[in-house]
Design a binder for these strands. Structure first.
Lengths: 86, 86
DNA sequence: AAAGTATTTAGAAATATTTCTAAATAGATA
DNA sequence: TATCTATTTAGAAATATTTCTAAATACTTT
């Protein structure tokens, strides 16, 4: 994990909203996309950024790919910020 | 304050290092710049991003401009992350 | 007032990001 | 097997970011 990658992932409003959606539980890529006025390809791009930042995990079932929050990275970020505060 | 702006400010390694430097206390723009292998103009650019994100405050004294951490925004960020964890 | 020091602003070049359309892949169903 | 559905990948266009050099601003000291 790199803080730069993680903060960059969080800097985009679409990606923050995706994470907020995932607070309620896992969701398929298509279901996530239905909340936005963008193509599936664009949503897929954003999910790949969140995945690289390790902010989400994916699991496959039938034809679908489900995404879910990975909160452990969020904790590392909070620890960094907490240390910054001193 | 906007979370997007703040996370974007934190996504750059130079800016995170500037903030880390400021943990020890206020520092002038030139003093900050001396820690990096970049022109003063570039450091000034990064400081302006941190300022817009409200992550630092500036104060002038004599010929110098001093920068210092603003931790209140850091707290807001932590609150957002904490809420994300649920 | 003139010259010096600290910092920012402007403009340009290189690189990165975000979005789209079209095509590819992978799995499910008829 | 053929086709349909869900999702990703590739490639391109528009925009944003990061860095530099050169010039401008602002304050201090001589």
């Amino acid at each position: 994990m790199s803080f730069g990658q993680t903060f960059k992932a969080l800097s985009d409003p679409v990606r923050r909203e995706i994470l907020t959606l995932l607070k309620t539980g896992r969701m398929s890529a298509g279901e996530i996309g239905s909340h936005f006025d963008m193509t599936g390809a664009t949503i897929s791009y954003h999910l790949s950024i969140l995945k690289k930042a390790d902010l989400v995990h994916e699991s496959k079932y039938k034809n679908f790919i489900y995404y879910e929050l990975n909160t452990s990275v969020v904790e590392e970020l909070m620890a960094w910020l907490s240390d910054l505060k001193g």
